[in-house]
Design a protein around this nucleic acid. Structure first.
Length: 464
RNA sequence: GGCGCGGUACCCAAGCGGCUAAGGGAGAGGUCUGCAAAACCUCGAUUCGUCGGUUCGAGUCCGACCCGCGCCUCCA
C-alpha cells in the first residue's frame, strides 16, 4: 500500500488513483526568465523520486510539467533586452532541459507552454464568466472569491480573515475585492497580448496550470506537486478556477516539498548564497552528487545546503559506487558454506516499503546500506555465492531505477594516457621501485584518478 | 495577529506508545597492504531543546516555556 501526505487533508493517506494502474501527475515547472536555482531542482528531484517510485511500483504515469513563458518577469526581461518574448525565453528553456538531463530527471510526457495554450485559457475565462464566477472590470477579468465558498481548503486560510495588511493593492488593476485574483490581464502597450471577445490581454499567472493540467490529464486527476510556497495563493487559486469551471474535484492528492535553504538562510542574490546548477558545475561539483544530496532528505523537511553536507552526500554515494564496482569485479567461486536466506529480496522489500510510506527516503537508504554492509561482510568471510552476489546486484540496480545515482557506463571510460601511466606504475611496483610508483600514483591523483591495489590487480576510480 | 514546520551523537538523519534509539559522513583502535586506498571487525547518544503531566511503559501523547524557520497575493 502506497501512502502520501496530502496537503489537502493534512494527513497521510492511502494512494488510490482515479484509474487503476495509471497516474496523472502535474508538477509546476519553471518560469523561464532566468536559470533555475538549486532550490527549484530540489522540487524537481523530489517529483522525479515520486514519479520513478510510481513507475517502479508498476503504474503508468502521465506526467505534465508546464513551462511559464509569459508572466511579468519574462515580459520584463525581454523588454530590458529589447528582444521578443520568444527569443528571451528560448535560452532559459534550453538551459532547463540541459539541467534536468544532467540531474537525471526523467522527462515529462508533456511540457506545455503557456503561450501555446492561450486558447484553452480563454475558453476557461469564458466559461467562468458564463457561470458567474468571474467578472470583467476595466478590460481585465477577475475571479470572485465570494462565489467560491470552498476557497482556502488547501492552505487552510479563511478568506474572511485574509489580512489586507502586508501587501495591499500591489496590483494596479481595479478589483471588486482585494482578495479576488486576476484571470485575464488587460493588454498594455509594449506587452504581448491576444485578442478575445472580452478584450485584448494576456492570461493571469494561475490560469495556465488549471488550463494545461486538465487539458492533458482530465478535469480530475491524481497528483499535483510543487513547492510549499505554491500552496497559497497559486494552488488555492488553481483549485478555485478549475472546480468552478468543471464543477468537480480538481486534484485528489496535493504533494508539496519543503524549501531548500543555504547555510540556514533563504537563498538570495544579495546575500551571495544563491546558486544555480551552473554555479555548482563551475565549482567542479558532480551533478549526480547534488542529485543524491537533494534526494536523500525527506521531501517534507527543510533541507539546508552547505558544501560540507554536499561532501557528506558525495561520500555516501561513493560507498554505493565502490560496493557495486567491487561486486562486479570480484571473481567469485562456489563457496563451501554459502549463507542461506535471500538478503537481496528482503532489502528490496524494505526499500520499497519505506518509499511507499510517504517516500521515506532515509529508511529506504538505510535498507540499501544495510544490504551493502551485510554483503561486504559475507564477501570478506568468503560466504557469498555467485548467485547471491548476482541477486544483490540486481536488487541494487532495481533500487537505482528510483535513485538514479550509480555511474553510467560512459563514465567508466579511461583516457588512453592514463592507462599507460598505470602500466608504468605496475612495472615500477614489480621492480619494487616504490618511490616511482608512489609518484605516479600522486600524479594521477592530481588528474582525478585514484588507484587501488587489490589482490586481483590495480583498479582505478575517477574522483571529481 | 492567523496558519504551519523543525530542535535526536561532532555533522547529516530515521524512528512518532513497548525488544539493547536505524542508516550515512567524520573520528579512534585493529585486520589486510611495500605504503596507501577500498573493504571488514571493534568503539562512539543510560539518552532524544527545557520543565511539568498522562501511562504499567514516552524522542514518541498532552500542557507550558525556550530556541530556529516558513507562508499570509513574485517565489520550487
Amino acid at each position: 500500500m502506497i501512502r502520501f501526505y496530502n496537503t489537502l487533508s493534512g494527513r497521510v493517506e492511502e494512494f488510490k488513483p482515479v484509474r487503476s494502474g495509471q497516474v496523472g501527475l502535474y508538477t509546476c515547472g519553471p518560469t523561464v526568465y532566468d536559470y533555475p536555482h538549486i532550490g527549484n531542482y530540489r522540487a524537481y528531484i523530489f517529483e522525479d523520486l515520486l514519479k520513478r517510485f510510481l513507475l517502479l511500483s508498476g503504474f503508468k504515469v502521465t506526467h505534465v510539467m508546464n513551462i511559464t513563458d509569459i508572466d511579468d518577469k519574462t515580459i520584463k526581461g525581454a523588454k530590458a533586452l529589447g528582444v521578443s518574448l520568444q527569443d528571451y525565453t528560448k535560452k532559459y528553456i534550453e538551459a532547463f532541459f540541459e539541467d534536468i538531463k544532467v540531474l537525471r530527471i526523467l522527462p515529462a510526457n508533456y511540457y506545455p507552454r503557456a503561450t501555446e495554450h492561450i486558447e484553452d485559457m480563454v475558453k476557461m475565462v469564458k466559461g467562468l464568466l458564463a457561470k458567474g464566477y468571474a467578472y470583467p472590470k476595466d478590460g481585465s477579468v477577475y475571479f470572485s472569491l465570494a462565489k467560491f465558498p470552498d476557497y482556502g481548503k488547501l492552505s487552510k486560510i479563511n478568506k474572511d480573515e485574509l489580512k489586507a495588511g502586508v501587501r495591499v493593492e500591489s496590483d494596479e488593476y481595479e478589483k471588486e475585492s482585494v482578495y479576488d485574483f486576476v484571470l485575464w490581464k488587460k493588454a498594455r502597450p509594449d506587452e504581448p497580448s491576444w485578442e478575445t471577445e472580452f478584450g485584448a490581454g494576456r492570461p493571469g499567472w494561475h490560469l495556465e496550470c488549471s488550463a494545461m493540467s486538465t487539458r492533458y490529464l482530465g478535469p480530475t486527476f491524481d497528483i499535483h506537486c510543487g513547492g510549499i510556497d505554491n500552496i497559497f495563493p497559486h494552488h488555492e487559486n488553481e483549485i478555485a478556477q478549475s472546480e468552478a469551471y468543471y464543477g468537480q474535484k480538481f486534484v485528489n492528492y496535493w504533494l508539496h516539498c519543503h524549501h531548500l535553504v543555504v547555510d540556514g538562510e533563504k537563498m538570495s542574490k544579495s546575500k551571495g548564497n544563491f546558486y544555480t546548477l551552473r554555479d555548482l558545475l563551475a565549482r567542479n561539483i558532480n551533478p549526480v552528487d547534488l542529485r543524491f544530496f537533494l534526494l536523500s532528505t525527506h521531501y517534507r523537511k527543510m533541507l539546508n545546503f552547505t558544501f560540507d553536507s554536499l561532501d557528506q552526500a558525495k561520500a555516501s554515494r561513493q560507498r554505493i559506487i565502490d560496493f557495486v564496482y567491487e561486486l562486479e569485479h570480484q571473481p567469485l567461486t562456489e563457496v563451501s558454506q554459502p549463507q542461506s536466506g535471500s538478503l537481496a529480496a528482503a532489502a528490496l522489500t524494505d526499500f520499497t516499503n519505506s518509499l511507499a510510506d510517504d517516500l521515506n527516503i532515509s529508511a529506504a537508504l538505510a535498507a540499501l546500506f544495510e544490504l551493502i554492509r551485510e554483503t561486504n561482510s559475507r564477501l570478506a568471510k568468503n560466504e557469498l555465492s555467485p548467485q547471491a552476489a548476482s541477486q544483490v546486484l540486481s536488487a541494487i540496480y532495481e533500487m537505482d531505477r528510483v535513485l538514479a545515482v550509480l555511474p553510467e557506463e560512459s563514465e567508466e571510460e579511461l583516457p588512453a594516457g592514463i592507462l599507460t601511466k598505470i602500466e608504468q606504475r605496475e612495472q615500477a611496483r614489480r621492480e619494487k621501485n616504490f618511490a616511482l610508483a608512489d609518484s605516479i600514483r600522486q600524479e594521477l591523483l592530481q588528474q582525478g584518478f585514484v588507484l587501488e591495489d587489490t589482490k586481483e590487480g590495480v583498479r582505478w576510480k575517477k574522483i571529481k
